[in-house]
Write a protein that binds this DNA or RNA. Structure first.
Lengths: 212, 212
DNA sequence: ACCTGAACACCGTTCAAGT
DNA sequence: ACCTGAACACCGTTCAAGT
């Protein structure tokens, strides 16, 4: 996949430190890809061939490590949501962004949990990147609501909770990739603006008297 | 709350063993209520005043312990779903069962994850109780689908995944109890049968030209 | 300025030794 | 038939000592 080491993002100045920094990210990327967001930090340090304290020096918390691995992805996501605001159909644009968010959050298992924590906790190393994405999503959501395409009583917080909930479900391994679509469809359908009060429970649909 | 010790469910015959068994459940109930499904087993044994091996003897796995704490609730849930099948409106009955499931799974934090695992893993101590509930829900779901109230392309597996996803979201602490309703409503609305192909994206709803 | 690894306080799980 | 706790192999986090 794409390199987890990105230029110009808090990389140390001294050569040895920079090499350690980068090596940690390469190994952490592999480890978290394999074991999920709860991968052993000790193991990462070991495989990276550095001391455990060195890992903590570069990334003082697990969130800081995940942030370094996800920052670029989150930033481009935010930008793409911003761009999506100028599309003709905000409802369809929002739907596309939801799918994109899901694709992004699924790169590592267990990341949805980290994100949910980051949204709430302003002190989290992941907070800034998540808050930026949330802000853009909020603007797009309101557009879709103003256009009458999304029910007006959901907030971005609700939206992110539902989508992260889906990501968590996918992490559980109950649904193969082809089986996931229906779950996303249900949530998206539920977000859609519903005309009139909840349909008056049709006793039976026309032409469905069903076998005896 | 209600006593976690129930009569006639695999309780040992010898007096000392039975006392230990019951004491473990009392302490485990308190610990899992406080710390969630991942509460320290060592801590539970300590607080129960027994050896760690004794805990393992009575409950060979964390799932076995959770099963003992949840069995009665799960059993009565299954029975209530079964009874709900004879209600006039299967769609409303299913909705009520979903709310009841949510209420049940929320008694301990992190239980949704255990349940998702138990559904998949036939060797889990929790499997039987979960599978029984799933079976009843399946029957009720099919009735609601036959009545045209629920989209026909969702399975019980999908339904349980969505609902456990909601439970997981609630566990994250982003949504206070009053804020949870909207999330449940979105999912339930999404499950409803949708007439015609997805509404052709109304350019604007009648009477919503909105403040320039 | 940066690296190292021992030290501390925890885990879950197993199992030989007891009563 | 049942209980016990040491033993093992892990954690995350901190910090004195090094270069």
């Amino acid at each position: 996949m794409s390199s987890p080491v990105h230029p110009g993002t808090d990389r140390p100045r001294r050569l040895d430190a920079r090499r350690n920094h980068d090596q940690i990210l390469v190994i952490a990327n592999a480890a978290i890809e394999q074991f999920g967001a709860e991968a052993s930090l000790r193991d990462i340090a070991r495989k990276a061939g550095i001391g455990l304290g060195t890992l903590y020096r570069h990334f003082p918390s697990r969130e800081a490590l995940i942030e370094a691995l996800m920052r670029e992805r989150l930033d481009t996501f935010s930008k793409r949501v911003r761009a999506a605001r100028s599309l003709a159909d905000p409802g369809a644009a929002l739907e596309a962004c939801i799918l994109e968010y899901l694709a992004g959050v699924m790169v590592y298992k267990g990341i949805a949990c980290s994100f949910m924590g980051a949204f709430q906790d302003p002190t989290s190393a992941l907070h800034a990147a998540c808050a930026a994405a949330q802000e853009q999503l909020d603007a797009l959501l309101r557009m879709a609501q103003a256009a009458g395409q999304v029910r007006p009583d959901v907030s971005v917080k609700d939206l992110l909770a539902l989508v992260n909930g889906l990501a968590w479900v996918f992490d559980q391994g109950t649904h193969a990739p082809e089986q996931r679509t229906i779950l996303v469809q249900v949530v998206i359908a539920g977000l859609r603006f519903q005309r009139g009060p909840s349909p008056p429970a049709p006793d039976r649909l026309p032409g469905s008297s069903h076998a005896t």
